[in-house]
Design a protein around this nucleic acid. Structure first.
Lengths: 142, 142
DNA sequence: GGTATAAGGTTGCAAATGTAACCAACAAGG
DNA sequence: CCTTGTTGGTTACATTTGCAACCTTATACC
């Protein structure tokens, strides 16, 4: 008979922490801009690294292509993103942020940094490195 | 202009790690017993702490009562759980595992321990404590 | 007792997700 | 060219979820 406790089980702990922390930040992009989490992630990539196609977004963000497709549609509806057809390969469209999209990105990136700093408050740099490294390792298991 | 990287943003990192790790374990309860994640969590609480009502499950597991209700229905359909009416308070039902439910619990709890151990492989006890403590702190923000 | 309020649970509905199928455009080999 | 396979991207459908409304039984207070 096993005597594992749920509160010690890493998948549980991670899920709880991720949920709590994500919901906390969700308030910002959701209430302020009416975005979903995937929208925010796509916006982030375009704002941070510049115009690119949906495939490139997918590659960088590790999001499934259907989620990217839907997020792009949402951001377009919010007038934060525009598409430009690629003449050389007519399957592809280059995505870029509109001025409104860039403003939203600037705002949210700043908030994200503040939020992140708050989450790490009281943690020593060594601990922080250990935690980050371990989370990266876990995230890369696939 | 902010220069945050997504891979450093804690909500992102946590979400990725939680997803990866949860999906990994999901394979076990899903393929072996046809359970959903909530089912497994409810099963766990009943197996680990004994018979209790749905409210108590909710309190311990931090699951929303709707999810508990549906998980109980699923587990019942899988013949792993049975309900017994409470004569004193007819709103309440005491939930307990059937023999099949207990066998599933034993099996899954054992697997969970093995899986957890694998996830911590190569991490020193000190690091592990720091990580666990920080995750708990984050999960309790609410 | 009778009325209001709350607690235990379930159900209905809308929103979100995952999966697979799909369409259009390109590329390679015959 | 033309058929076969691949890539970029969207759509359809089933499954999950979250939220609010709901039903029933119990409790508090008059």
């Amino acid at each position: 008979m096993s005597n594992l406790e749920m509160r010690d089980f890493l998948p549980y702990l991670l899920t709880m922490a991720a949920e709590e922390v994500s919901v906390g930040f969700q308030r910002v992009y959701r209430e302020r801009y009416g975005m979903l989490r995937t929208d925010w992630r796509v916006l982030f990539h375009l704002g941070r690294y510049g115009a690119m196609t949906a495939s490139e977004v997918r590659g960088r963000s590790r999001l499934h292509k259907t989620k990217v497709s839907r997020a792009v549609a949402n951001l377009e509806r919010l007038r934060m993103l525009s598409r430009e057809a690629d003449e050389r390969d007519r399957r592809r469209e280059t995505l870029s942020l509109t001025p409104a999209g860039m403003r939203a990105y600037d705002d949210l990136a700043r908030e994200a940094e503040r939020y992140d700093a708050k989450l790490w408050h009281g943690v020593t740099p060594q601990e922080r490195d250990a935690i980050t490294a371990h989370l990266r390792r876990l995230a890369d298991l696939a």
